[in-house]
Amino acid sequence: MTASAPIAQPKRWLKPSVLPGFGLTFGLTLLWLSVVVLIPLIALVIRPWEMGLERFIDLASRPRVVAALRLSFGTAAAAAAVNLVFGAIIAWVLVRTEFPGKRIIDAIVDLPFALPTAVAGIALAALYAPNGWIGALLDPLGIQVAYTPLGIFVALTFIGLPFVVRTVQPVLEDIDADLEDAAASLGASRLQTLARVIAPALAPALLTGFALAFARAVGEYGSVIFIAGNIPQVSEIAPLLIVIRLDEFDYAGAAAIGVFMLAVSFAVLLALNLTQRWARRATGNES
């Protein structure tokens, strides 16, 4: 076949289609996205440059700010780690066992998504206060949860729970039963199969679930502030400090913390994206 005269089309950014409405829908999408999300976020992101990078760094490195950021990231990581373990167990139970009421349990896992955070916040505070149902049990043991960093950890564990379960569950469902049977037929023990066949297949989902739970927990506000006690440099989380700065009309101070948090959550998501891409290439599946 000889190549005929190259009348190849210039590369168009939009592939032509007979379906109508692209201009309208794409235009509206872009407009709305810009007005509601992009322009406001840009306004935040360029604040540090508006006020001068030095001032920004100064604001973001005050002891109270550093303490708040450290507390937020630390408790979020701890809560996400606990959710990693229990999320995996719950997902396993939901996929691999049968018991009466399982479907209800399956549905209830999403409650932290659906329950307004303020409601969760006051409920947890009431439970873990020294005179609350759980607090009263822990008090004699000398354990205080409410109004301490431990309380923050409890609240963040509550809101992060569904993330790990809901990312691991579908992957676990998709793991081919034959794979395990094959491993068993090749002489692998149950534990070996678990460690060498199932764990690697679940690893990307576990990581994703952890990162999502972490990202959510870092920014969480409503469920935390009621139980935290909010003592500066002890149990004051970063989002709360933003609110306090705003109440003081200290926009620069609020923006400095906000930018920093935004940067970290993007970094987490970016890292996550890259690992997922890497995992996809390594295993050659998962869309």
Binding site: S4, P6, I7, A8, Q9, K11
Partner: peptide, 14 residues
């Protein structure tokens, strides 16, 4: 009739 998808001729003077 000719039709190109990028540089690829799906139909070449049919």
């Amino acid at each position: 009739v000719s039709k190109w998808f990028g540089a690829f001729a799906a139909l070449d003077k049919v």
